[in-house]
Amino acid sequence: MTKFFSICVIALSLVLSVNAQKLSKMPPRVVLIGIGAKNPTFNEAQYPHLKIYYTPELTPVKNATETQNAAASLSGAVKFTYDGQPEFLKNIWNDKNIDEAFMLFDKNGLCVAQGYDVDKQGDIASRLCTDKKPLADHIKDCVKKGKTGKAEKKEMKLKKSDFMVGYSFPEFNLSDIDGNSTKISEVLNGEPTLVIFFNIPDNMDLNAAKESGEGKSGKAFLKSMVSGAAGAGKSGVFLALESQVYDYDAREK
């Protein structure tokens, strides 16, 4: 039984390795869109291949504390709603669970595949899209073969899990990591692009776990540990994208 289990583990590792190689050999452009303003403790420079943008005109409806935001992030059971612009992102964030959801756009800016929890199994290439096909298959079609999608004629319905497939983003503004304004049409820029959504509340200290607990009270120590754990969880998808899509080790040295 032990030998059989070992063989299964090795076989699974080989499959995951092959899938990871698929993406690194045909990497799409990867854009991450943050819901809300930039977090001042988040170091985007750690992830040189990823294009990261924010939506500072979206603000939380409830002014949660750092600990509340961190605890909500860890549990995944609580999600704080946002208000403001762009209205399209406000609506899909408030109505659907799009934290770490992904959308693949062809060179014409048309969404050809959509899915959720991009790194849920630790292997982005084999993550299933809403059509049950692995993401790697769609990326191969768009990036390597240059295929394009077919535009839907019917009105988009947000209640569908694949609501974006067959549609282009409505135009909206974004801010880059330096605070410069741009538009989503300029961000997609006429090439296959994997778009992933994320949310790091601007009052969450991502460096809390690096600080020494010496001299802190029990409450302060717990607060720093909760924030640090949440920060580590938030950075996971960025590390996975750098590693699996670009074969780059973005871990802090």
Rank of each mutant, 00 (worst) to 15 (best):
K157M: 08
M204R: 01
V15R: 09
G109T: 05
K144S: 15
D178N: 15
L135Q: 03
M1Y: 14
V31C: 02
K154V: 00
A71D: 09
V237K: 02
P56W: 05
K62D: 13
Q46A: 14
L58M: 12
E252Q: 14
V187R: 06
V226F: 03
L32Q: 06
K62L: 11
K210D: 15
Y167G: 01
L222A: 15
K183P: 00
F238M: 05
V18G: 02
E100N: 12
A71Y: 07
K210E: 11
Y53L: 07
D99M: 10
T182N: 08
A20C: 10
N180G: 05
V78T: 13
K160S: 10
I10G: 07
S175N: 13
S161F: 08
S235P: 02
G34V: 03
D123H: 03
P170M: 08
F169L: 10
N94G: 07
K51I: 03
A113E: 03
P27R: 06
G213N: 09
L239E: 12
L222M: 14
G36E: 02
K25P: 01
A77D: 13
E186N: 14
K160P: 01
E252C: 12
G228C: 06
L23V: 06
L50G: 05
K96V: 04
K107N: 06
K96D: 04
A72E: 03
G233F: 04
P201G: 04
D176V: 01
V78I: 14
S73Y: 15
I98F: 04
L74I: 11
M156T: 09
N69I: 05
D137C: 06
Y248R: 00
D99I: 12
G34D: 06
Y53P: 03
E214A: 15
E214I: 12
T59C: 05
N69A: 09
A101C: 13
L32G: 01
R251K: 14
Y248K: 02
T41P: 09
E214K: 15
A45K: 15
S227V: 05
D176M: 04
L128C: 06
T2H: 14
K219L: 14
G233I: 02
T2S: 14
Q46P: 03
I124D: 02
P192I: 01
N97H: 11
L104V: 07
Y246T: 08
K132A: 11
A208S: 12
F4S: 12
P192M: 02
L188G: 00
E171A: 13
T65M: 07
G215F: 00
I124V: 12
D141C: 08
P134A: 09
C111A: 12
Q244H: 05
C8P: 05
E186R: 12
F102A: 03
K25V: 07
S227C: 12
I139A: 07
P40F: 07
D205K: 08
I7S: 11
G218S: 11
S217T: 15
F172L: 06
V237D: 00
E57P: 02
L110A: 00
K145L: 15
Y248M: 06
D106R: 04
G109W: 00
A70N: 02
V143H: 01
K132F: 09
N173A: 14
E214N: 13
E242S: 06
L74R: 03
L110C: 04
K216F: 08
L32I: 11
R251T: 15
V30N: 03
Y82D: 00
L14E: 04
D123C: 10
P27I: 04
T130K: 10
A209Y: 10
